[in-house]
Write a protein that binds this DNA or RNA. Structure first.
Lengths: 128, 128
DNA sequence: CCGCATCCTTCTTGATACTG
DNA sequence: CAGTATCAAGAAGGATGCGG
């Protein structure tokens, strides 16, 4: 992981977890894989706006951290599938309360994954 | 908040929450204020290594987001205290499971806040 | 003591083109 | 299809000095 701290250890568990999910697209990857396994191209389309370089880099980091499993079918044309490991699923579970908090307290968050009202509001906190 | 997305809304609640706690020292600030209110200088010493500029910037962002409360006593010499708002406390609560996950699955995380065994390990995931 | 202003370095991300 | 290489841009963080 590129953002991994090298100098010393972490200060607390959240600090450490933030290092694993710190990439711009990391949680979106986890969220997509939560539903089902995805191929590389599927993920790229699901995470609209991500570039191949960044997606590959994030996937590599998540794989190194044991969060996602990469399965290369060794076919032609190439087929590679990414899925969550048990550790990845446990991370998603630990992330759930934070997601609830965000949906409850921040404007501009869609209520449910995949569809629904995409808020166009100025992303201001509700309960401020 | 500097990192606030301007183009469109968030993709999910975690995405949005990450935008609030995304700063390098944000969760450490929350963690310090969880225990008790801190003066600016106290915070600076508690977060060893942070610079005044960055600390002030993060505090301002957290204040704008309704996470921390800033109380200026208007004295000379200046005295300002920072504390968590109810929203800030609820954010900390939502962060707790993530902290547990980090402590359980990442090496180099001290078991409890404030003291204890600071791991010097290579920060590799345990349960990979 | 609290905090801002300026300048600068590093890290992260993005655009584009190319390969097996 | 699934990536890698190279180049470039932008944001976050840090160093230092000044002001109320």
């Amino acid at each position: 992981m590129v953002t991994r701290r090298g100098a010393d250890a972490y200060h607390c568990g959240i600090d450490a977890a933030m290092d694993v999910i710190g990439g711009k697209w990391k949680v979106l990857i986890l969220w997509a894989l939560e539903e089902r396994a995805h191929r590389f191209g599927e993920l790229r389309r699901a995470l609209d706006g991500v570039t191949e370089k960044v997606l590959a880099s994030h996937l590599r980091e998540l794989e190194d951290d044991g969060i996602v499993h990469r399965e290369d079918f060794g076919e032609v044309p190439p087929r590679v599938e990414y899925s969550l490991t048990p550790l990845g699923r446990s991370l998603n579970d630990a992330l759930a309360p934070l997601g609830d908090w965000g949906r409850a307290n921040i404007k501009g968050v869609p209520p449910e994954p995949g569809e629904g009202a995409r808020g166009r509001d100025p992303r201001r906190l509700v309960g401020g």
